[in-house]
Simulated assay, not measured.
Amino acid sequence: MGGLLLVYGLLRFILMSRFGRVVVAIRENETRAQLIGYDPRLFKLLAFVIGAGIAGLAGCLYVNWAGYISPGVFALTMSAQAIIFVLVGGLGTLLGPILGAVLIQWLINTIGDQGTVDPGLGLGIILVAFVLLFPKGIVPLVQAAIQQALTLRKRNVGSPLLADADPLQSGAE
Rank of each mutant, 00 (worst) to 15 (best):
N64L: 12
I69D: 11
Q81N: 15
V73E: 11
V88E: 13
G92P: 07
P40A: 12
T77Q: 13
T31Y: 02
I36Y: 06
G89V: 01
Y68N: 05
N29V: 00
A80D: 05
L91D: 08
A52G: 13
P40S: 03
A82K: 01
R41V: 13
V49W: 10
G90Y: 11
A25W: 02
V63F: 07
S70N: 14
G51M: 09
T77V: 13
A47C: 08
L42I: 09
L95K: 06
L61W: 03
G53P: 08
A25E: 02
E30N: 12
Y38R: 07
L35R: 00
G90L: 00
V88I: 15
M78K: 14
V86I: 11
L87I: 06
V49I: 15
G59C: 06
A80T: 11
E28Y: 03
M78C: 08
T31P: 01
A25C: 10
A58L: 11
A52H: 09
R32T: 01
V88C: 10
L94R: 07
L87E: 12
F48P: 01
L45I: 03
G67P: 05
A66G: 02
I36A: 03
A25K: 04
Y38D: 04
F85P: 01
Q34R: 15
I36L: 11
I36D: 00
N64T: 11
I54L: 14
A80V: 09
A25F: 01
A58N: 02
G92H: 09
Y38M: 00
G53D: 04
G56N: 13
Q34V: 04
I36K: 01
Q81D: 14
G56Q: 13
A52N: 10
L35C: 05
L61D: 05
